[in-house]
Every structure is written in C-alpha cells, then in structure tokens.
Design a protein around this nucleic acid. Sequence first.
DNA 1: ATCGTTTACGTTAACGTTAACGTAGTTTTC
DNA 2: GAAAACTACGTTAACGTTAACGTAAACGAT
Lengths: 337, 337
Amino acid sequence: MPRRKGPTKIEDVARRAGVSVMSVSRAIRGVEGVSEKTRADILKVARQMKYMPNSAARSLVVSNSNLIGISLPTFAGEVFAEILNGMRQTFDSAGYSSVIDTTEYDPEAELAWVRRLLSWQPAAIILTGVDHHPETRELLRASPIPVLEIWDHTDDPIDICVGIDHFRAGRMIGDHAAELGYRRPAFVSTPLGHDKRADARLEGIRSVYRPDAGYRVAAARPPLGNAFVTGFDGTATLLDQDQPDLICYLNDHMAFGGLMCCQARGLRVPDDIGIVGFNGLDLASVLPMKLTTIRTLRRLMGITGARNLLARINGVPTERSKVLPLQFEPGQTTRKQ
Amino acid sequence: MPRRKGPTKIEDVARRAGVSVMSVSRAIRGVEGVSEKTRADILKVARQMKYMPNSAARSLVVSNSNLIGISLPTFAGEVFAEILNGMRQTFDSAGYSSVIDTTEYDPEAELAWVRRLLSWQPAAIILTGVDHHPETRELLRASPIPVLEIWDHTDDPIDICVGIDHFRAGRMIGDHAAELGYRRPAFVSTPLGHDKRADARLEGIRSVYRPDAGYRVAAARPPLGNAFVTGFDGTATLLDQDQPDLICYLNDHMAFGGLMCCQARGLRVPDDIGIVGFNGLDLASVLPMKLTTIRTLRRLMGITGARNLLARINGVPTERSKVLPLQFEPGQTTRKQ
DNA sequence: ATCGTTTACGTTAACGTTAACGTAGTTTTC
DNA sequence: GAAAACTACGTTAACGTTAACGTAAACGAT
C-alpha cells in the first residue's frame, strides 16, 4: 500500500520489492549489478505500481538529458519537414526526445531559444544554417554540448556540420543557363538578408553572369508568405520590370507559382521563358511538364546529420563538415535558346 | 574568483553578490522578496558570471516544467505545420518550450512518446485527433497534466479539445454534390483505419449518398506517400475502375494531383468530371481554376487550442470541447450537372 | 510606548535520482 | 587453501534549486 501522496517513486518500488533503491535504479536502467531474477522481480513490481522515472531528478544528477534541441527557420514547405523527419526517426529510436524551435529566420529568436534550451542540459543542439547571432556561437562554443549545423556548410562550424553548398548550387544553375544560351536570367527569392542560403545561390548565379561582363541578374524579393503565392507575385514583378528570358526560383513551390503566373499571362514555357526550381520536390512529379531543378537529398541530410551527431554524443570521432552532393535535373522548362 | 569546476550555479552568484541563494533565486525569477536595488545588483553579477539556471533542478523541486509536448501525425503537408505554428507562437511567448513527436498515425508510437514525455512532468500535452491507444487515455486521465486534443472533436475528450467536425465536413461536400446533381461521387483517401478523420469525412458523404438509396461512393486508398502523387494515383485508379462524375479528396494537395491526372488523360474539369478538395490551402490561389473546397481555420485552431490550454494550465475554467466552423468554398471545379 | 504589519532578507529541508564507494559472500587462481 | 577477483547487493552523499518558515529591522496605528 503506497504511503500517501503523489506518484510512485523509486523508493516506493524498492520498499515493495524488498530491495534498495539502487537495485531498482539499476534494474530500470538495465545496467549491471543486479541478478536476472531480482531484475525481473523489480520490473514486475515497478509495472504494477505504474512507476515512472523522474527525468528531472535523473538529469540533475547526471548533468545531461535525453533531450535534443532542433531549431528550424520554419515549418512551411516540405524541405525542413523532410530534414526533420530524417533526423527525428534516428533520434527517436535512440531514445531521445526532440525539443523544437522555429526562428522564422530571426537570429535573436534563435539565441533566446538556445538560452532556454541550454538550461535543460540537452544531449545536443541542432541549428539550421551556419549564420547565427555571435552570442549564440559564443554560448555554444563555450558549452560541451555537441552542436550540429545543417542545410548549409562552412569550414568553421560551431562543432559539426552537414549540408550542401548553396553557392555551388547557384553556379550549377548559372552554368546550365549559360550553356543553353540564356542571356537575362532573374531570381525570385526572399527579402535580402532574410535567408543567407538564398543570397548565396544568387551569388552563385552571378558568378557565371558576372556584372563586370555586362550581365545583370535581376532579383525579385516579394514579401514573405505562402511559397506558391510569392513565386507567382515575384514572377509578376519581374515580368513587368525586367525582360528576363529565364527565371530561377528559391524552390520548386515558388517555381510552380511562377509557372502559373506565366500561364496566366499567356507566356509559353519554355518557348517564351525558362523556369528553374530548386530542391526536386515530389510536387514536380505530377506536373505535366518536368521542372528543371536541382535535387537536394534532404532526408539523407537529416539522417546523416543525426548519425554524425549521435556519434559525436557518444564520443566517436566524426567528420567535422560534410557537404552532400547536388543533383542537377534538366527538365522541360528550359531549352536551348 | 570561481571555486573550481563546472558551470556557475546559483550559490556562486550568491557568494559573489554577497547575498543568500534565495535572494538570487528570487531576483532571477522576478518574484517578490528582494529590493529593487539588490535585484539589480544580483542580475548584474549573474550576467557577468554567465549564470544559467538549471531547469532540471527547478523542475525537480516544483514538480513541473515549462515543457509542452505536442504530438502530430506527420509534418508532411501544410495542415499540421500551420496548426503547429499557431500553437508554438502562443506557447513561445508564454515561455514554454515545445517537445514534438510525429506518430505517423501509429497509436503505439504515440503511447511510447507520451510515456517518455510524462517523465519530464510537462506543463501540458497536446495530441492530434481523439482516437488514441486505450492506455494513452488511461495514463493521461490519471495524471493531473492538462491535455489538449486538436483537429478532431468529441464530446468526451481526455481533458479539453479544439477541432472541427469531420463527419459534418463530409456531409457538406455531399450536400453540395447532391445539389449540383452529381450521381457518382468518389473519394480519394488514405488506407482504411489509417486516418480516422478521413474515414469520418467519407461517412459524411455517404450520409448523403446513402447505400440503401442505391448509391455507391467508391473510395480509392492509395498507399501513403507524397500527397500530390497519391492524389494522382488514386484518381487514376478511380477513373479506371469506376465511372465517377465527381472526385472528392482528403486535401487540396491530393485534389491538385487529381486535377493533373485528369488533365493528363484529356478529361476536362469541370465538364467531364468534378473535383472537390479540402482545407483551402494557399496552393489553390495560384491555380488557374479555383478549387471547390472546404476551408479549415488551421491557424486559428492552433491559437485557440493554445489559448485554452494556457488557461487550463493556469487553472482558469475553459470550454471543454470547442468545434470550429467550416467554410464551404464553391469553386470552378464543380458545376451544375 | 505598545503591538501589529510589512519588508527584506536568511536557514533549513526537501525534490527523486545516481555515482562512488563499501561489504559480505562466492568463485577463481596458482 | 589462502589470496585475489568477482558478484550482487546496500549506504552515503551529492546534483542545483525552491517552498516554507524564521527573523530582525522599519514602519504605522492607536
């Protein structure tokens, strides 16, 4: 019969099972130091009494937790959802719980969240991208907690890093465009400075269509919102203000919005104008016209990142910065000029 | 000069500031019991020493935490992302952190996660839908932790509930179809029993197109995958096997996939076949043809749910089960037969 | 002057768990 | 057959924080 108040604790189980609390602790955690028979007895009693360990107490004494913090810019779009899925699956089966944040691309918000999270002594922290508030870097560098930066890459990560080279992605697009003979490419993106990866890709395109060679890569930066809609609106702006012969987009969703905009205006793709997406989303597979895009291995990125991080948590040496390959996929929305 | 090891604790701050630990605790938490001057001094010292509270220790002594657990079926699609966004915003500004789970529609997985989460003594738990593992219900009913069930509704929630009436949504679709004179509606969904809400909507349609009145509402249940693709595939199956004059979809993404399938087969919408989506996603706004759909107030649902839950956490009485309205939006993909 | 009341602190004792060490009894080793 | 090495436990002391209570000084009301 339980004493009086609240939930069952380890001591109650110990008393009922006629052993010490340490034996219960060992039995529950599955560590050595109890015979198989006593372990079985203890576990039975624990189940009967509906014992549930107190993670805070455990965390307090061992100075860490099975929480993993994951910070994403946003849940919108499939990209981060897919990365997250890859990671969560791996972490979940390793017994970790995910504490999630969305920064909406605000470094201050990220910092505030990192602060809060650190108070839980998490097993690891994952940030999206490699551009953070200086204090975020300082804080995390000073802590012994493993940190993974994902989706982008750098030679000097806070700790470890798994991502793609966005500048290179931009250059791939630029090279393809140049090869086909496009002369006035444009880019539909997000507000400047908002998403560093978007800016890096634009720079990649401009490294092929160099301003000093007389090129001008126009960039539309419609305000944030649904990707389909921003793609549509950004395209409208570009078509009004510039005479692009090719429009590149931040992602396939936007590209689809752009496609719709072109159709609505009676422009024929790829005859009148070319369109290039990014990410290689499944959306593309139902479209009547195969989209020219760059496929990113998002799920693989999540899984690889999670694996490397788990290794890091367990003290196994790991690749410090991993860059995943990009797959250029020529489609029917671009053609030889 | 700090003693020796590890991170700063409250005692270090107290010693340096020349006060007791309780004064530091009070100053940090912003509770009464310290003069404004001492509070300021203490906070300065704490900042200097980079003091960071230990949440586990706090949680241990107060028997709760500022963690809120949120369980979703999946991150795929915009629907749950939008609900989540609405909730997270509210929780975040109230100082809570979100511990997130995706069950992939598996009640056992949900149960396992609830177990793990409970060990953290969370401030609240949010589950998607109202169908759970019996043990999940039992566990949560027995605990004093506030529980919110979202997206669906029931008269007998575990604790509180905010959602929509999916059966009624189905009936709305059925009524609209009947009014326009459709005679062979069909439904593209997920595998049977996988998503109870999908099944409820189908039942809603069938409550209008009653089998005992001679109607037969065919249902395609393509295997899980990307929504655009399953919509496309499910439509192909229906077109091959049945002769539907109207196809209703689990969501707008699927409906778009279906639209693409019809176009690929040379069927004209809405002349040859009608299409009805669900959710009223922003995707629809860029399509050349306005989709007939039912708009669900997902963001509002998230915000309302979060508000009610916060009230519940703070002991303020709250509506036990709230049903949000549905907005039927007739579009250009259905027409009078 | 006397007796509450308030303010601004400090002291003590948990909260539930585990690391580290202790200790019998048993087995192995040479 | 005694020392050494294991095995299966138990005891003790933290881990860092806060609730609850204690206390001394200042203040206010009669």
